[in-house]
């Protein structure tokens, strides 16, 4: 069953158009990745789903039209977002950052916090620390944790591996896989790190300068010669 359906979506920042009639769908329980270089439009796509950009086209979440809705409404519809560069609240503690994430799903706060602490035990140790003092990996964990505090049905994760050490990247990958396998959470990832995306996702879309170029399973994409030359340098 389809959870998120995007049809001929275009995005505009003022007069500049940064997405051109992009279509994709994300099935319930799936992990889907959108890969592409810097400036390909991955973050714009994520921001569009959150209602943070001016769009044309169609976007439906479980059949309900969500285009033109405010970010707060999209969150209430069940979309959690860990954006590029995290956008944490630097002078708030880790705990308070998570609590802000629970702004809409207030009745789930205790359960969600326990869940986040279980996924990322370090965040429990750092609960009283301001996020400005955390390492890059820990900030990424707070960011994903804050998104989980909204009780999402769909988790959007934008560039979760940027600037992180291989060990931390592996940890984040393991956590996302666990979220998908154990809780059945549907995840949409935007990544430049192709290996990370291929390893996690069942379906991968390639975005190039705002156009959707090709889509398929990781195996299908690996078999595409032109794509291999462009992205894997083989």
């Amino acid at each position: 069953m389809t959870l998120l359906e995007i049809e001929r979506l275009s995005a505009f920042y003022g007069r500049a158009q940064s997405l051109h009639e992009v279509s994709l769908s994300v099935g319930k329980g799936e992990v889907v990745a959108v890969i592409g270089t810097n400036g390909a439009g991955k973050s714009t796509l994520m921001d569009s789903i959150m209602g943070m950009v001016t769009n044309t086209g169609a976007m439906r979440l479980e059949g309900q039209d969500i285009i033109g809705r405010s970010p707060a409404e999209i969150v209430r519809h069940g979309v959690g977002y860990a954006p590029e560069r995290a956008h944490l609240f630097p002078f708030m503690t880790v705990e308070d950052n998570l609590l802000v994430g629970g702004y809409t799903a207030r009745e789930d706060i205790d359960r969600n916090i326990a869940h986040v602490h279980e996924l990322f035990p370090v965040l429990k140790e750092r609960a009283r620390q301001e996020t400005a003092t955390l390492s890059g990996g820990e900030r990424q964990m707070v960011s994903i944790g804050r998104a989980l505090m909204t009780s999402p049905r769909l988790l959007l994760v934008d560039e979760p591996t940027i600037g992180l050490s291989p060990k931390v990247v592996a940890e984040i990958a393991a956590t996302l896989r666990r979220l998908n396998e154990e809780s059945g959470l549907t995840i949409l990832i935007a990544e430049q790190n192709i290996n990370f995306a291929m390893e996690l996702a069942g379906t991968v879309h390639v975005l190039e300068t705002g156009h959707m170029r090709i889509s398929g399973t990781p195996q299908e994409l690996m078999a595409d010669e032109e794509l291999n030359r462009a992205y894997f340098g083989t």
Binding site: M50, M52, P71, A72, V75, R76, Y81, P83, A86, H87, L88, F89, P90, F91, M92, D96, L99, V100, G101, G102, Y103, T104, A105, R106, R146, A147, M149, T150
Partner: peptide, 21 residues
Amino acid sequence: HVGRAISAVSMDIKGAALSGV
């Protein structure tokens, strides 16, 4: 919740918005 949301908006508007504020 509202008080924390006030701080959140003062620190990062996008971060606040994607938290449902």
